[in-house]
């Protein structure tokens, strides 16, 4: 073998080894800084064993034509003003994005919400303490816990942490809400780098849904079934779905896709048949209502291999329907409140 042949072979082998090495490190150790993380930065705080994650780009959604139009149609609630007065947070302007995730099943299920935006942390902390919160530190992060909060999930097995909800100031501009166990696990995940970016199955779907989506959800369907969130009747009749992903994009209307990854191709075919059956039933029930028919026609079912995808579009006209229904309800109530058009 000549020297240049030998160099060529070594060069090729190095490229392959480099690629596999980068991939292996990313796969087993979260991610490398030079390769792009995949997923929002908040993923650093989600534990690797999350059942599902959700993301919403609040800024884009709030500025979309759809939301602007929705605001004209639906009267704005007083809650928003109340929240702004109490917390000093304007949901529409001060919050950039929200990431949520759940870990565990049933009584051991813990939820976590990470909110990124611009907050007056001093004011929020004072307010929380004023409302009975206890300020403490966990691995260098400020944590305010509320005992026996009705909002906290019972963290079975966590001893005295049962019923504690908490707020944590993770970074400048990043707040975490949830039960105490979930928040402590989030801080641990960030410290140890054993976070969701190392969950290859979930990250694969996240990678596929996140680009260009304003809001998305990816979850392990089996875990959700086990957590008894779904009624038993529904769970037992659904074909073996392993993963699901929902992604939406807001513009004039809302369009998006719901994707399910079945265990095998047979299950995917069954699922497709179930969805098509449901759509057919919907058409039958809708009678001659052109608007419902238009909505059902906007649903497209497709699939390949183990995956089944439903594309949907919520046209801006749907707001007119909502407006019409709301107006009719107000008239029948005799409330007389005029709905903007």
């Amino acid at each position: 073998m000549s020297q240049r042949t030998r160099y060529f072979m070594i060069g090729s082998a190095l490229v392959i080894v480099l690629g596999l090495g980068v991939g292996a490190v990313a796969y087993y150790n979260g991610n490398l800084p030079l390769t792009g993380r995949g997923g929002p930065a908040e993923f650093a705080y989600l534990p690797a064993d999350v059942n599902g994650v959700a993301y919403a780009n609040v800024t884009t959604i709030m500025n979309s034509q759809f939301t602007q139009r929705l605001r004209q149609v639906l009267p704005t609630g007083d809650e928003k003003t109340k929240l702004q007065a109490e917390l000093g947070i304007d949901i529409e302007r001060d919050i950039d994005s929200v990431v949520a995730g759940t870990v565990g099943f049933g009584p051991d299920e813990h939820g976590l919400v990470l909110v990124r935006g611009r907050f007056n942390t001093g004011h929020l902390e004072a307010l929380a303490v004023q409302h009975g919160g206890t300020a403490q530190e966990y691995k260098g992060k400020k944590l305010i816990t509320f005992e026996n909060s009705p909002y906290a999930h019972g963290g079975g097995g966590a001893g005295d942490q049962v019923g504690h909800s908490a707020v944590a100031f993770l970074e400048g501009g990043l707040l975490a809400f949830g039960d105490r166990v979930a928040i402590e696990r989030a801080i641990d995940a960030n410290a140890t780098r054993q976070n969701v970016t190392g969950n290859a199955d979930l990250m694969k779907l996240v990678g596929e849904v996140q680009a260009g989506s304003d809001a998305w959800v990816v979850g392990n369907f089996e875990a959700i079934s086990r957590s008894k969130t779904l009624p038993t009747e529904v769970a037992t009749h659904l074909p073996a779905v392993q993963w699901f992903a929902v992604s939406t994009n807001f513009n004039g209307g809302v369009n998006g896709t719901v994707r399910a990854e079945a265990r095998d191709e047979k299950a995917a075919e069954e699922l497709k048949a179930v969805v098509n059956g449901a759509l057919a039933a919907g058409r039958l029930v809708s009678g001659q209502d052109k608007r419902i028919e238009a909505m059902l026609n906007a649903l497209q079912v497709s699939g390949m291999g183990k995956s089944v995808t439903i594309s949907f579009t919520v046209p801006p006209e749907i707001l007119d329907i909502i407006n019409g229904v709301a107006a009719a309800k107000h008239l029948s109530d005799g409330s007389g409140t005029k709905v903007k058009k």
Partner: peptide, 28 residues
């Protein structure tokens, strides 16, 4: 020695666009 390095280079260039290296490593 010619085909596989080409695949690896394509993977390193393309996958980080809206995806994750970790998520698609098994596929590679």
């Amino acid at each position: 020695c010619v085909v596989l390095p080409s695949v690896v280079i394509v993977w390193l260039l393309i996958v980080p666009i809206g995806g994750s290296i970790a998520g698609s490593f098994v596929d590679l």
